[in-house]
């Protein structure tokens, strides 16, 4: 079963790529956060598949569950931020967020 590892990681990398593409190009704040969610789906697929292929499924399962908990905390924080930003400038356009320049 070990040669299936690359197949699962192939799909995980694909998900991460889709998310990154969206993060780099899109403008809607909620869209950007959906992209983060897509990336984290890729990560959790990688964790569980690695465990399954390498006979470590119990350990991988507990890691995946912990990762889901982290995800929820992140989503709550980020969406709270988005709502606050929306309250301030009545828009979700990321281009309005350019007052600060790196």
């Amino acid at each position: 079963m070990s040669n299936l590892w690359f197949l699962y990681l192939f799909f995980a990398a694909l998900l991460v790529f889709i998310g990154l593409y969206c993060l780099l190009t899109m403008r809607n704040l909620i869209k950007l956060f959906i992209a983060v969610e897509v990336i984290s789906k890729g990560v959790s697929l990688a964790i569980v598949a690695t465990g399954a292929v390498k006979n470590n499924i119990l350990l991988a399962q507990s890691l995946a569950i912990t990762y889901v908990v982290v995800e929820v905390a992140l989503v709550a924080t980020a969406l709270a931020l988005i709502i606050n930003i929306y309250k301030k400038n009545k828009s979700l356009d990321v281009r309005l967020l350019s007052k600060l320049k790196g």
Binding site: R27, I30, K31, L79, K90
Partner: peptide, 27 residues
């Protein structure tokens, strides 16, 4: 239950709360 359920609910809640003027045009 958590990701497909809870997180989706949170997303939809946020989308509903930010309904007005969310017409962001993507390139």
């Amino acid at each position: 239950s958590v990701v497909a359920g809870l997180i989706t609910v949170l997303f939809i809640l946020t989308i509903a709360l930010t309904k007005k003027g969310d017409e962001v045009t993507e390139a």
